[in-house]
Amino acid sequence: MKPLSIAFIVFTLALLGFSTYQALFVAPTEQTMGDVQRIFYYHVPSAWVAGVCFFVNFLASVAYILKRNSDADALAAASAEVGVVFCTIVLITGPIWARPVWGIWWTWDARLTTTLVLWLIYVSYLILRHFATGSQTKLLAAVLAIFGFVDVPIVYMSIRWFRTQHPSPVMGGGENSGLDPAMLHAFLWNLLAFTCVGIILVVARYRLQQMENEVEAEHARLALAGGAR
């Protein structure tokens, strides 16, 4: 491993420790929800990382279809996997937060349902990658990724109409929205830490995929050389 990557990992670990301290001890306790609100510092950054990963997956898939570059495919595979992991964290931390605050584990509200459908789409993407055979995998996966990405806004629109009782966004919403500055501070530290973790995971998975591709190519080369003898 290159010294730069090691330095980045150490930096991220330190950052994670600091942001966890910020979230658990420094940030003020929320008035009505109490300590359970602190899950916010993990829930929202995870959603952010998942969203960025799925967007990267879309861009990499388009790049693969246009250029047929297997590095683009490796990036698509890596970002989809990491995205699904963080999306799973969102779907698990969400109900844990909702149960004491809303009194229910789950509601079919627009954002929850869209996140669940998003998760389903990218799990089906991973299943396709798993079941597809040979060199076609990359193209088939890239094609499905484009369908999935196009589908997300339509899902959101349809479910918004279906269930209109969704809670208004806390940040960037109406007049009374907005975070306490101390909370925003802890939140931004966590956002940064989670983004770094996401980058590390995607890069590590990307390199692994590249190595797998190289091994496969070497196998193919050896098989051809053996056939020629």
């Binding site: 089906s124 589908d151 899902v155 479910i159």
Partner: peptide, 10 residues
């Protein structure tokens, strides 16, 4: 069905 159903949800 595994790839068709998620996309068809809306």
């Amino acid at each position: 069905p595994l790839i068709l159903f998620p996309i068809s949800i809306p």
